[in-house]
């Protein structure tokens, strides 16, 4: 399951969709189904994790060297 962690969000999502389709197509043994089920659940977790990964920072680039400061919009500043 470790290799899944390396995937980009959209890749993990595509993989999850593929797993679901594969399971829904039937024709699998119970054991194969369980394996797919397990990787599907792991992929779903990874997708949710990746969605929540971003920190939600809003910054202002202030210098040519890439220096940043927290950005305050005018409304926030005037509060």
């Amino acid at each position: 399951m470790k290799e899944y962690q390396e995937l980009k969000f959209e890749e993990a999502l595509a993989k999850l969709e593929q797993v679901v389709r594969q399971l829904e197509s039937g024709e699998l043994t119970l054991d194969e189904s369980l394996k797919l089920f397990e990787s599907g659940i792991v992929l779903a977790r990874i997708c949710s994790q990746k969605l929540d990964e971003a920190e939600g920072k809003i910054q202002l680039l202030i210098g040519e060297e890439g220096e940043r400061s927290a950005f305050q919009s005018e409304e926030e500043a005037s509060l």
Binding site: L51, A54, G56, K57, I58, Q59, L61, S73
Partner: peptide, 27 residues
Amino acid sequence: SPTGAAVRDIISVARRRHPGVNLLIVP
């Protein structure tokens, strides 16, 4: 422009769609 309507609109829409997104305003 860091003071225009555009930056305000972009921040508010981006936040609404995904509160966790990182934005970098380059004036």
